[in-house]
Design a protein around this nucleic acid. Structure first.
Lengths: 219, 219
DNA sequence: TTCAAATTCAAACAAGCGTTTAAAATAGCT
DNA sequence: AGCTATTTTAAACGCTTGTTTGAATTTGAA
């Protein structure tokens, strides 16, 4: 039994049926690219149900993201906080590895939850002209603060400006990779005959972003 | 006088007026997010002109990209080819730096050309479910081959699969950063009182991606 | 100048969008 | 069972989308 919604259960609420269908379609085709009619017909509910239960499409998008963020945010905060609370200086690999457990936890909450969430995150940064970015940074600021603090502890020589850019590069790497992870995993399967899952992609990306953030400071 | 279009010239062709308006709107709001009516009214041409001159919106998108790729592709090929033709092993910094001159050349071809092109590239990878990615990889395969060869020469220990992932991470970093570069440059201006331009962003990103690709191989 | 080709134009098309409405159905409490 | 509040439903709303049409206009060579 899932915490988020109930898969394949015909007795679940209209609200959750909509959320479950919406998140998959949003992840696949973007927020702008998915219509309410697609969502409601896949969820097998009436078209008007979205506006009845959520008010508008924009509020539905927020609700889809909040369902994941409410699970992720506290776990991420405590994992990052733990790195900063003791006296030993963490490595950047450790900082980025702090994301693994909370992110993979989403897989136990919902089938493919990790992948869906990261794809949604990617969509949110490119679709809809940044309104979702605003929503996340204002609604869950502690995640960003905790992350910044952890990176600063691991690499104090990095100036605020350099850290700003490198964290955004990192965000870009993760978000872009995940928003096209399905296609990339397909290519990897064809070209290298290697079955890879979302955890495998995360394992590949962490050394990359850790090295990027740790790059020598340019003069 | 610009190679691509003519800025502020009332005597330019309808076709170029459409292309000039379209690329800016596409870069700013994405392909799906920009309507033909926005394009034609900003270009001060009739709505039907797009379908008359280009056939469809999809063909217009291709034409916008092709105008830049035809300038960029040969310069990129020769810059990357030069790295591979002699006997000295290039550093990864050199490989990525090979992109700078061809990319900045787009600025001489069109005002803000570099920034616009990179934003369009970012849009193309997330909007429209990857049809533009297909278009670019099939239409300009030599750029990808040259890049792969150059990276292999700089870092031969990297397996094909690891290189595949790291190049896609790199692509993600660049493309994502550039598709939101306007917002990022604004934030940098507010938070650090630093005027930064697209060339400045490129300078920041190269050490990052070079270090990422050069990261130690995971076991 | 004439005439055919190329281009521009206003208008309309069919289709899809998010949202609203008011009636019908259901659920939950007394 | 009866009544109220909640939820579901079909239909329509007003608007925007990409595309097409056919007539008006401009262009360029003979």
């Amino acid at each position: 039994m899932n915490v988020i919604g109930v898969i394949g259960n015909k007795n679940m609420s209209t609200k959750n049926k909509i959320l479950d269908s919406a998140e998959i379609l949003f992840a696949d085709k973007g927020f702008n690219g998915t219509s309410l009619r697609e969502i409601t017909s896949q969820a097998e509910v009436n078209l008007a149900a979205v506006n009845y239960h959520f008010g508008s499409k924009k509020e539905l998008i927020k609700a889809v993201m909040s369902r994941y963020m409410s699970e992720l945010s506290p776990r991420l905060e405590s994992a990052l906080g733990a790195l900063c609370s003791n006296d030993v200086k963490p490595s950047l690999i450790e900082v980025f590895s702090a994301f693994i457990e909370p992110l993979l936890y989403l897989n136990t909450v919902k089938e493919n939850g990790t992948s869906i969430f990261l794809q949604l995150l990617g969509r949110g940064y490119t679709d809809s002209q940044g309104f979702l970015r605003w929503f996340l940074t204002t609604q869950y600021p502690n995640v960003f603060i905790g992350f910044t603090n952890a990176v600063h502890k691991a690499y104090p020589e990095l100036s605020a400006e350099e850290m700003f850019w490198r964290l955004h590069f990192t965000m870009g790497t993760i978000v872009f990779t995940m928003s096209s992870s399905d296609a990339l995993i397909d290519i990897a399967l064809n070209d290298f005959d290697r079955q890879i899952d979302i955890a495998g992609v995360i394992k590949q990306v962490i050394p990359y972003v850790a090295a990027g953030v740790a790059a020598p400071i340019i003069k």
